[in-house]
Write a protein that binds this DNA or RNA. Structure first.
Lengths: 120, 120
DNA sequence: TTGTTATATGAATAGTTGTTCACATGTTTA
DNA sequence: TAAACATGTGAACAACTATTCATATAACAA
């Protein structure tokens, strides 16, 4: 016996019109990937805490780790990701590095998220 | 030799006033965790695509997998997560299950995210 | 210069997660 | 009833990720 099961498309398109209509309305794949990338950044409580820390004041790495209660190293690693995502910026003053928010949408995105939580 | 290095707090709080002020303004930890959980859900392109699929019409599992180009099984697993996060709801019609959006904030959150992308 | 402090970073590790595969469940149809 | 079909789900696996540890870098202080 060569093959016991017939290989078949496991899925039948039931509502072809809706599928095609929706396909045309979808943003292009690249956009959706980028969108997922940004939310992936927000999907970690350490990073959320870092961003919240910076809502009103700039802070140095040391301050942030003390505030959040995590290793300086861990914070530094996460700040690198936030930098890459253009969510924070920094300025150096001697050996101290001050980080601050670099995006105006973070607050509104967080607020929308909070509203979802509150309703559930 | 028992210990070569002296264990020390690796971090000095430099700006104690800012740290304390910020600590008081932070949402409580539980809220921040919940917030991260929601964004974690949005942080996957398959789930983003599913949610976008449902922006204008309800769709059955088969339609969604055909549209997105992923296994029915993978879609089904992801729909479970979206259900748990109360982002989608469903209705059954015979053996067909129709899914639809169950949250009014998804669109505005996505739009804010898109605005961030457009600026970078 | 030497020691100290603030921050960055590579490597290793443990934990998490998305997909696949095989199969179960439940519904419809012949 | 048996076969076909839509969907759900547990287990396994591969890929990814957050933290830790050790150490590097760079600026300052003595």
């Amino acid at each position: 016996m060569i093959k016991e099961k017939v290989v078949k498309c496991e899925c039948t398109i039931i509502h072809n019109d809706i599928v095609e209509k929706t396909r045309k309305e979808m943003p292009k794949d690249e956009t959706l990937y980028d969108l997922a990338e940004i939310f992936k950044i927000f999907g970690d409580s350490t990073r959320i805490k870092i961003l919240y820390s910076l809502f009103k004041n700039e802070m140095c790495v040391c301050d942030i780790s003390a505030l959040i209660g995590t290793t300086q190293s861990a914070i530094s690693h996460q700040l690198r990701l936030l930098k890459q995502a253009k969510l924070v910026k920094y300025r150096k003053d001697g050996k101290i590095v001050y980080y601050s928010l670099d995006d105006s949408h973070v607050k509104s995105i967080f607020n929308e998220g909070l509203r979802h939580i509150e309703e559930n």
